[in-house]
Design a protein around this nucleic acid. Structure first.
Lengths: 236, 236
DNA sequence: CCTAGGCAATAAGTATGACTTTACAAGGGC
DNA sequence: GCCCTTGTAAAGTCATACTTATTGCCTAGG
């Protein structure tokens, strides 16, 4: 990613911190980092700046670089999301799936209000592609179309924050396929709902688009949670 | 914020970029920054690293520091949110209000499932405080309690991403009061809904908590949009 | 004995200059 | 006209010296 040395060190240290090595309160000293990674002061400091920007650490004079409590980490930073996925994939996916459940219905409603004709047409095309690939049993192509569909909805919502969640949704969708949740032939009801959403967006029916999307993500979340095991229920 | 020179320069350059000065594609050169702000290479480079981490810029060898298209900016980074609020407060608030509308009902549902007894009790206490301050007509105290209430719900959801949105919600809530949207005495129906949510969370009734929260944010969004004027989502 | 205030040590912050790497672009060979 | 070489501009890295602010200690005063 980040080209050179800087990127590699950020990656390694960031992973360690998000993995819970160096628990909150730990102080890392810059000259320690220099020796450990064999880097110069400048690079070490830039690494700290990058991690500080994700709110993983905070640097204080006369003290060092202290690891912040994880409640303060920028949970929406794509880099951190990636690190946390590699640390505890299931927990992070539960978090992401829940976020998706919350956002997509409202995004669909907004898309029905704001989508341009082009965007709506594109959406319909993607829905048709889902029908075709589902019928053909081409799972890989189907998932690609699925991701593109949800990305298009989020983008057409006109809300930049919604739009940026397409990677989150993609991550959840792609993971589902890799774990046999989705049968070799996608469930017909899901395909139908995608088509309905596309049609509602085209016709500007926000309420129905929202309702259809809610049905879709509810089903998806149900399956995801089942696959992930118990939601870590407080009382048994 | 950021202690010294670095923080000031990040703040100034970041504001300029998010304001649309330096449109996407613009190249800023590091030595140019050094002269402009009277800073050394180290500081300039760290500033670039920080802005790059927010995805506002991307630095390429032999070219310079290029401003990225705004669709790629980390719209969830608190710093960027703050900058965008100061650039176009209304547009950003519309975005944030919509996000809130999406997330809070699901967060309430999750809170009903996951909240500890302490958290539930705290929530009920905050609801009672809202009743008291509303009755007394103490608007400032009421808004504080309102923010604390929503923060508590988001926190009790057990979803770190939801929890982190408390600042977003706080921003929307506090802004509403400053613009006469909320009458000097808060609407009784809103107060009642807060109480209902608290009670549902305590009793573990996720479905009703979600429904009550949906009613609450729907009303709030309606008022906010009316106050902000037409959605006018046409512009880029 | 306990508090206030100053002193010194420490680690981050800033500055500077030399050197390396890489990607773009122009010019020459096929 | 196309591809490959080569020069160069700008970021990337390194080493070092110096500045600043904070913390913890130690002494003086109550």
């Amino acid at each position: 990613m980040g080209g050179g040395l800087h990127g590699k060190v950020v990656e390694e240290l960031g992973r360690e911190i998000s993995a819970g090595l160096h628990p909150p309160g730990t102080v890392l000293r810059i000259d320690e980092m220099e020796r450990r990674f064999g880097i110069s002061r400048s690079v070490a400091r830039e690494v700290v700046r990058t991690l500080a920007s994700i709110q993983l650490v905070m640097s204080r004079k006369r003290v060092g670089v202290v690891v912040r409590p994880r409640a303060e980490w920028n949970a929406f930073d794509p880099v951190l999301i990636r690190w946390l996925l590699s640390v505890d994939r299931e927990a992070q996916l539960r978090t992401l799936a829940e976020l998706r459940t919350a956002v997509e219905p409202v995004a669909a409603s907004a898309a029905a209000r704001n989508a341009s004709d082009e965007q709506a047409a594109h959406l319909v095309g993607l829905a048709e592609r889902m029908v075709a690939t589902a019928r053909a049993g081409d799972l890989a192509q189907f998932v690609d179309a699925d991701c593109a569909f949800h990305r298009a909805v989020l983008g057409a919502s006109g809300n930049p924050m919604f739009a940026q969640l397409h990677e989150v949704v993609g991550e959840v969708l792609r993971w589902r396929t890799g774990h046999g949740l989705m049968p070799s032939h996608p469930r017909p009801v899901a395909v139908r709902l995608h088509c309905e959403i596309a049609e509602c967006v085209r016709s500007g029916d926000g309420a129905r688009a929202e309702e259809a999307m809610r049905e879709l993500v509810a089903e998806a979340l149900e399956g995801t949670i089942a696959l992930l095991g118990e939601p870590a229920a407080a009382e048994s």
